[in-house]
Design a binder for these strands. Structure first.
Lengths: 334, 334
DNA sequence: CTGAAAGCGCTTACAG
DNA sequence: CTGAAAGCGCTTACAG
């Protein structure tokens, strides 16, 4: 609870001198510096960051904005890893990480700018933002440094992106399915409004074209990242198009629903229908058969995002978009 | 970026008046209040909480201290739910939640008190603390309000606890196993230093006694909450004591290891060996057979912890210990 | 090398 | 009903 004022009194110097001594300014005699540090230690002094930030008109607080987060465990896994990655980097660099929950509705009520101002947030990392969200619009003119995860926006130098190279990853999956003899490959995509959905669909389409296969729109379904919806869509697909021998899902969770659907239809994975997912959630390696999937490195994504944001805060130059390495894990479902 | 000073200028009043108007003090004429609020809106004013907190010498920041967290997905699930629960409650009550990572080693370097002072933290919620940790000692004389999750300490009114009624839950499991005809029930416990391990073991012992069964120390193993270690311990147990027909694990993750062990020994769950876990992680309902377990409500635990801490900060009275309801989920593994 | 003074954006007892 | 002044704990140009 001791303040600089108190230390100054004890040391018989001014607060200015204490501040300088404690902050390693050069223009302090070794003798007084030592004395001051001694006293600080003795009274277990720790600086008041709040006051410091106020005086400096800057802050060391980074906001991790989570938008429209579904509180499922699969999602929890992902967010937890992002969080840990970002948090660890922040800690190592004397930044604080503040979690901010929001959703489409809340975004209409209060602007991101205001949220940040109130809390003296220096910059934000955003996850879960959709193209249709109010913040998406706001971000295009945002004045604070901002790192988007899994979504991209152009024309504002304050905003950069960290993501997986979705197109490359999806192509790898589709090419592999083709290599395994599949020609009729369906695609169960996530939420239309999600940026990654668009990109993954693009990858799917390009991959098919690259292989000389026809893209059939009937083979593409949207299950909004819900396991149950994916189940339904898979049933539809397999009933209406019995020629389908492989299904690629834009998330593992959806793939689990599809797996159930295939089983319920009396078919077997991978013999009757091959199945591949995306994300690399824990469950993917515990289900039977184990799921072939693209394992994203969310912890690293969080780390890179924090690192990038801190660089931006220091006016160091960064790439507009960074791709975090993924691993295409081939398992028994294909 | 506009401040009260600016608003005051625009409105032709003093900063004092602006402060009072914006904070709904009664001694302001309706007319000026309206004018000030108008201007504040027009310029999209938002208060600087940092300055506010400094002036009031209080803070609305709560620290969520995570100690020695294993970055596994199962753990991630748990922490994510705790976090969401606490975070939601904080948001609804105008408190901020700051994540703080620590571990046994870090705890030796810097006291919790100092961590809190630096960041102007009003109180803390702590998860993952062990009896052998430096903070445990410090907490016993802690001056800030503190809510411990899954660990208890007596003699300091600033410290309270939120947990599952582990003894009751464990007894329920053991009684159920007995009801299913099992008399030789082994117990694979977690980390000795963890408070919940002690309590769950107590529950196990008491349950057996209550049923008139003998407690055999050879039936109790410690796998430190590791899946792999649990695998090894299960192999030992089943080889050395073939009469064992049921194994209860202090965590689901360990139960997964045990499940593998049983399978690898050519036995079947539940016919040869019944298996029960603890926690209710997502995997517990996806494995085959699905795991009988005690489903803890971590989100609620986080919520209650935050609620309790905020009450303590407001000097309202709270229970020394709160039990969060759990659900004993009977599934095919028993 | 040291310190008085002004300032960061807010609050609040006090006087008028 | 309104405002000047002091204060929260810090920093930093500036003067000596």
């Amino acid at each position: 609870m001791i303040s600089m004022k108190e230390i100054a009194k004890q040391a018989g110097v001014s607060v200015t001198t204490v501040s300088k001594a404690l902050n390693n300014y050069p223009d302090i005699s070794e003798e007084t510096r030592k004395r001051i540090i001694e006293i600080a230690k003795k009274y277990n002094y720790s600086p008041n960051f709040t006051a410091r930030n106020l005086a400096l008109k800057k802050s060391n607080i980074i906001g991790l904005v989570l938008s429209d987060i579904r509180e499922t465990d699969s999602n929890g896994n992902i967010i937890y890893r992002l969080l840990i990655g970002a948090k660890n980097f922040c800690s190592d660099n004397d930044f604080e990480l503040l979690i901010i929950n929001t959703d489409h509705k809340k975004q209409k009520t209060k602007k991101l700018e205001q949220l940040c101002k109130e809390r003296q947030i220096a910059g934000v990392i955003i996850y879960g933002l959709k193209i249709s969200d109010p913040y998406f619009e706001e971000i295009s003119k945002f004045k604070l440094p901002c790192v988007l995860i899994d979504i991209s926006i152009e024309g504002n130098d304050n905003v950069t992106t960290v993501t997986t190279d979705n197109i490359k990853a999806v192509k790898e999956v589709i090419n592999y399915l083709y290599l395994k003899g599949h020609k009729n490959i369906a695609f169960i995509n996530g939420l239309r409004e999600a940026y990654v959905s668009k990109v993954r669909e693009l990858g799917y389409r390009e991959a098919l074209k690259g292989l000389g296969l026809k893209v059939r729109n009937e083979y593409i379904k949207y299950a909004d990242y819900y396991e149950d919806v994916a189940y339904e869509k898979a049933v539809e697909l397999l009933k209406e198009h019995p020629e389908i021998t492989a299904i690629f899902c834009a998330s593992d969770l959806m793939a689990l629903g599809v797996l159930r659907a295939i089983n319920d239809l009396g078919k077997k994975v991978p013999d009757d229908v091959a199945l591949a997912g995306f994300d690399g959630i824990q469950l993917s390696e515990y289900v039977n058969p184990r799921l072939t999937t693209v394992v994203q490195d969310f912890k690293e994504m969080g780390r890179i995002a924090a690192q990038k944001l801190i660089k931006m805060l220091k006016n160091e130059s960064v790439e507009r978009i960074d791709y975090v390495p993924y691993v295409f894990r081939k398992r028994e479902s294909v």
